[in-house]
Write a protein that binds this DNA or RNA. Structure first.
Length: 492
RNA sequence: GGCAUCGUGGCCGAGGGGCUAGGCACCGGUCUGCAAAACCGUCUACUCCGGUUCGAAUCCGGACGAUGCCUCCA
């Protein structure tokens, strides 16, 4: 029997602002769409947080036995830099700067994005469609919206008529905005726009002569509006009405609001049951954003090549750090917080690796079933990874107690404990055991072990001058010796 | 200016009317030739001012502050 039959998930639905019991449209199956990156530069850490948040959702749903179709797009069509008609396509701009073809930019940064997510051990989505691969579908939707009277054409561009739409529908439902307020608060643009109202948004834009990325359409040679691609691709792969739509908090308005409007204007369907928004990662208290330069690249963290951190950090440690905060909370990135996370992570992994060394007894002095359910409870409560991690530390404490013979466990429970821990640490959180992979291999390891043996001989002879010299000089190179009951180990 | 979200101990972060997570640091202890590492223990906090309540960090109102969105952004 699938686990999901016993575990009831609650999801915070951005549109109702409440936690709601999750009930998929089709029992046992989940359709999830997440807005992916615009591939015009290296993916930054803030982007990664959002995708890691939804990776957790994907992994947990999978763990529970749901059949999940997870669609995450790549925005490669390029969109205007500002709202004025003369704005330049960002991908084209980047291409001009780097003197390469626009699709070369797209290719380069798509690869970077995939590499980075792989380092974080994020699962690839089930389908990863591109905007440029769905121009036909987007044109099809525009035609329908025009036919339904919620869009108008002007000078080869097509705009969504927000005021008209709002007469019969509710524009602003998701973001809690009121169209009348928006109209009164909007400052006038320079009057260059073809739009009837500043709130209207483009479904299709006629391309200026210098614009490289362009496709033919009934209205002009041009390119689709940004909001449209998600409507087209989510509809194509998940249907007109699907379960979960996710994205960064910054996409709530206008992007997701416009998606809802487009879907309703297209087919009178509320497209999404559960809207999920992952909160921002801040750096120095400010949102990380490519456009402002306030960002740090994942690779700069992994290599240590940056001005913010004192040392390199492994991707899995960065991920663990992120999961110690709830996805709906703003999280501030700092050296101190990362170092604290790294130590905690090491403690957890060490406890996990000690499971095999535990003594077996006739009784278990701990309620394993309650603990296990508390892990599920944490995740069921809107994917509360910080509480899950707290529960994992409870298990670590218990493991250490058994090791010190202050608690006991049976063979059967030991297996159960290991299976549950393994499921949550590796399967659900998607963490990796980096320590056991890296340090104990190769010639370096042999050399260090040789020195360890020499030191231990010196210690046995009470030649502490020599033994301390070996220890201290290794430490100066960056190799730390750890004396334990079962001998001496080292970490780099 | 409008719309949101948030303000928790030295730091990071959960929780969300009485049962008061977790991690890191500090301090104390076990271990050690001494250390380090590891493990154990300790540390009781919710911006301010009113209100509701037997009881508020938690609910309501206000003030102050922070952040996000209102233009492309995860």
């Amino acid at each position: 029997m699938s686990l999901f039959k016993n575990q009831n998930i609650k999801i915070y639905n951005s549109i109702s602002k409440n936690k709601e019991v999750f009930k998929p449209i089709n029992e046992g199956a989940v359709g999830m769409y997440v807005c992916g990156p615009t591939v015009y530069s290296n993916v930054h850490l803030g982007n990664c947080r959002t995708f890691l948040s939804f990776d957790l959702v994907f992994r947990y749903l999978n763990h529970l036995g749901y059949k999940v179709r997870y669609v995450r797009n790549i925005t490669d069509a390029g969109h205007l830099e500002n709202d004025a008609d003369s704005g330049e396509d960002r991908i084209a701009k980047k291409a001009r700067i780097e003197e390469i073809e626009p699709m070369e930019v797209v290719q380069r940064y798509t690869i970077d994005f995939h590499n980075t997510m792989a380092k974080f051990n994020a699962l690839p989505p089930s389908i990863e469609p591109t905007a440029t691969g769905h121009i036909v579908e987007q044109i099809g939707i525009i035609k329908e919206i025009l036919k339904n009277g919620f869009a108008y054409e002007k000078n080869g561009s097509v705009y969504f008529d927000v005021l008209k739409f709002n007469e019969s529908h509710h524009y602003g439902r998701l973001s809690g905005r009121n169209l009348e307020d928006m109209v009164t608060n909007t400052r006038e643009l320079d009057g260059q726009s073809d739009k009837k109202n500043p709130q209207d948004f483009a479904l299709w834009k006629k391309a200026e002569p210098q614009h490289i990325m362009r496709w033919p359409s009934p209205w002009s040679d041009g390119f689709p509006g940004w909001h449209l691609e998600c409507t087209a691709m989510s509809t194509k792969y998940l249907g007109e009405h699907f379960d979960i739509h996710g994205g960064g908090m910054d996409l709530k308005f206008p992007h997701h609001e416009c998606e809802i409007a487009q879907s309703e204007a297209y087919n009178e369907q509320n497209p999404v049951n559960y809207w999920m928004h992952a909160n921002m990662l801040t750096l120095n208290g400010q949102k990380m954003a490519k456009s402002t330069g306030n960002n740090i690249l994942p690779n700069e963290i992994f290599t240590g090549n940056n001005t913010i951190l004192s040392k390199p950090f492994n991707p899995t440690v960065v991920k663990f750090f992120m999961y110690q905060a709830h996805y709906r909370s703003i999280l501030d990135f700092s050296n101190d917080a990362l170092e604290a996370a790294e130590k905690g992570y090491n403690r957890l992994m060490e406890a996990f690796n000690n499971i095999g060394k535990l003594p077996i007894e006739a009784k278990t002095s701990w309620n394993l079933e309650d603990w296990k359910q508390s892990c599920y409870d944490a995740m069921n409560d809107d994917f509360n990874s910080p509480i899950l991690i707290a529960q994992l530390f409870e298990a670590a404490k218990f493991i250490n107690a058994v090791k010190d013979q202050k608690a006991t466990i049976t063979e059967k429970d030991l297996e159960g404990l290991k299976a549950t821990l393994s499921a949550f640490i590796f399967e659900v959180l998607g963490l990796q055991d980096v320590d056991s992979e890296s340090s104990n291999t190769g010639k370096l390891s042999d050399i260090v072990n040789l020195l360890i043996n020499l030191r231990n001989e010196a210690r046995a002879n009470k030649d502490f001058a020599t033994s301390d010299k070996i220890r201290d000089e290794l430490a100066a190179i960056g190799i730390q010796l750890k004396d334990g009951k079962e001998g001496t180990t080292f970490i780099l």
